[in-house]
Computed example of a mutant assay.
Amino acid sequence: MSESTGPGAPEGGTLALVLTQVAEAGPLAAACALAKVEVDAAPTPVGAVAVCRRTARGEPEQAAEAISRLLSNTPVLLVVRRDGALVASRWRGGTAADEVAPGLLLDGAPPELEGLLVGTVAVTDLDGVVSSVGLSRWRATRMLASAARAARRAR
């Protein structure tokens, strides 16, 4: 039976987050939809975070691998909270690079991220959440194209 952190996940259950430097939740959710990674993407002041819907052993690593391949030019962090313990690892280009001390993540983390990590905030409590689940390829592609156009205009 697969553990899950869907929108109504119980507090204290397994949680897997992929922290990115993507500016907005929409493009991250769209990219995840195209890669068939089930996440709820939420904006934070330090970048969008992908909250994995599938958290059985090995599945968060598959999500981090896929997301880090999509964002091949920038590292991402996978943080898993299982049985009350946090484990964090840095990923780049589809490969786990090294482990990161979880305490470093909490030090100076924005309240949204800290709340998710310690279990006091559910992803559904955050504003601006976009799910990759149910996004069609067509809609995801349009979202990415729109974000790319906005980024070009901002330069």
Rank of each mutant, 00 (worst) to 15 (best):
T20Q: 02
V76D: 05
L15P: 05
G128Q: 06
R92F: 07
L78E: 01
R152N: 03
V129M: 08
G115V: 09
V80M: 04
E59G: 05
L135W: 01
L135Q: 02
V49Y: 07
L117T: 01
L15T: 03
L117N: 05
L135S: 03
S136E: 11
E11D: 13
L71R: 04
L117V: 06
L19Q: 01
R82Y: 05
A42G: 07
L105E: 00
T5M: 01
P7F: 10
L144F: 08
G84Y: 15
G8P: 03
L106K: 07
L113P: 00
I67D: 03
A150E: 11
P43N: 09
P10E: 13
N73E: 15
S4A: 12
L116S: 01
E114Y: 15
E3A: 09
V49M: 06
A154K: 13
E114K: 10
A16F: 05
P45C: 07
E114W: 13
L126G: 02
A147E: 10
G13Y: 03
L17Q: 00
A30L: 08
L15W: 04
P110A: 05
G103R: 10
A101G: 07
R69Y: 09
P102H: 08
P43G: 14
G94M: 01
V37L: 01
V18P: 04
G103E: 12
A154G: 08
S72C: 10
V79R: 02
G47N: 06
A150V: 03
E11L: 14
A23S: 09
V100E: 07
G119W: 03
S146G: 15
E61M: 08
P60S: 07
G26W: 00
A16W: 00
V129P: 06
E99L: 12
V76E: 06
A33H: 04
E65H: 04
G93S: 14
E99A: 13
A50M: 09
L117R: 03
V130G: 02
G94S: 07
A154M: 11
S136I: 05
E24A: 12
L105W: 01
R152G: 04
T120Q: 08
V123G: 04
L126D: 00
C52F: 00
D83M: 09
L78G: 00
A66I: 00
E114Q: 10
V87S: 05
A9C: 07
A109H: 03
P111I: 08
A151S: 15
R81K: 13
A148E: 15
Q21A: 13
E99S: 14
R81M: 07
G108I: 10
E3R: 08
L19I: 14
L135T: 07
S132H: 02
V118D: 13
G84F: 13
E38V: 01
P111W: 07
A41R: 02
T124P: 02
V133W: 09
L17Y: 05
E38I: 02
R69C: 05
V123R: 03
L104Y: 14
P111L: 09
R92K: 12
P45M: 08
G12T: 06
